[in-house]
């Protein structure tokens, strides 16, 4: 297991929290919560060691846009591919938007 953390400039806090995925083989769990205004933090725990650069590239591409709402992101990964990582984060982000159904 390896832990990684990144942070990015962001806009105002996201509207609500959201969850996507499970910590199953080739999958991951993404938890999003409203962050402190102006800053998104990403904390990753992954079962796969030594792939820091791939994670940085994948996460940078999503959160480097500082127009996004501020989030506290937690990722628990069990060997997901970059495509699955992007999918789960997108699913979770969709639920945090103000238009999303509240649940």
């Amino acid at each position: 297991m390896q832990t990684l953390s990144f942070d990015y400039p962001a806009g105002p806090p996201a509207a609500r929290r959201a969850l996507a995925g499970v910590v199953g083989s080739g999958d991951l769990e993404v938890l999003l919560e409203p962050g402190d205004s102006g800053r998104t933090t990403v904390a990753i725990a992954t079962s796969v060691d030594g792939v820091d650069e791939i994670w940085r590239a994948v996460i940078d591409r999503i959160f480097a846009d500082d127009g996004l709402p501020a989030l506290k992101v937690e990722i628990n990964d069990f060997g997901a591919t970059p495509a699955v990582v992007r999918l789960r984060i997108a699913q979770a982000m969709e639920q945090t938007s103000p238009e999303a159904r509240h649940d």
Partner: peptide, 13 residues
Amino acid sequence: LPKQNIVTQSDDG
């Protein structure tokens, strides 16, 4: 699980 280097799930499954 973390003491054994295993990733947890937020609801413990």
